[in-house]
């Protein structure tokens, strides 16, 4: 089945438990068979949360920027369903304090497709918004949840914000990435104001088998081998 995305956008394809999945340049995941767009860690409301806690007053445009990107991905893929894999809001107060422009855009997007909020550690109780709220969900042959669970087979998750670092001919390239092996994929963070956790971090220990790969986001998503979480001396932060 060919969707229009494959004609207009560079994607990188992988299979997980016989499901065919496309990593988009933005870091979202397009699942043609389920007509679903899956995104992790939007962290909407981040700048306001930082301000509320007495930190710097960051440019308050990241929520709109994230939603504009989501809008473009929904349009490009023609998705019928959007699944947000948790930490969609930076905290519960952030959800209530969403700006009016963000609210309008979000409700327009929610009218276009079915919407599932998987809850995360930052937003355990998404409420007051339309869409289905679940702590985890089953889709096709896969389980979708916020934080990966060791020992599960066929799982999509977010939470860690994986980021790859490569040194190529003296030039360091650092990109959010999707980490994939035979049993799971961990998605990069989709939100604008999100940092990354180095792919060599010990947090990834034990989650990936030896023959894993990382799919780097960017105009042309591309894959490189990933030796799951085991510290390799040649690559470092």
């Amino acid at each position: 089945m060919q969707s229009r995305i494959e004609r207009s956008v560079n994607t990188c394809v992988f299979t997980l438990r016989d499901e065919t999945l496309h990593v988009l340049p933005s870091g979202g995941l397009w699942w043609p068979d389920q007509q679903s767009l899956i995104v992790a860690d939007l962290h909407l409301g981040k700048s306001k949360r930082i301000a509320r806690r007495g930190g710097g007053l960051l440019p308050p445009y990241e929520g709109l920027d994230t939603l504009f990107r989501l809008d473009a991905d929904i349009t490009a893929t023609g998705a019928a369903r959007v699944v947000c894999l948790g930490d969609s809001f930076d905290d519960d107060a952030a959800q209530r304090a969403l700006g009016s422009a963000e609210q309008e855009l979000l409700s327009r997007l929610q009218k276009q497709c079915d919407w599932v909020w998987v809850t995360g550690n930052h937003d355990p109780g998404v409420g007051g918004l339309s869409g289905t709220v679940l702590s985890d969900m089953r889709l096709g042959s896969l389980t979708l949840r916020h934080i990966a669970e060791a020992g599960t087979d066929g799982e999509l998750s977010g939470h860690y914000h994986p980021k790859a670092r490569l040194t190529l001919r003296g030039k360091t390239i650092s990109r959010p990435c999707c980490l994939v092996d035979q049993s799971r994929a961990i998605l990069p963070a989709y939100g604008t104001y999100t940092g990354g956790l180095d792919w060599r971090d010990k947090a990834f220990n034990g989650l990936f088998e030896a023959q894993a790969m990382a799919i780097l986001t960017g105009q042309r998503p591309c894959r490189v081998p990933y030796r799951g979480g085991e510290i390799s001396a040649s690559s470092h932060v």
Partner: peptide, 14 residues
């Protein structure tokens, strides 16, 4: 680690 912090380049681009 840098999971919680993000690059100032993102702020510049924004």
């Amino acid at each position: 680690g840098k999971q919680a912090t993000f690059s100032s380049d993102i702020l510049y681009d924004t």
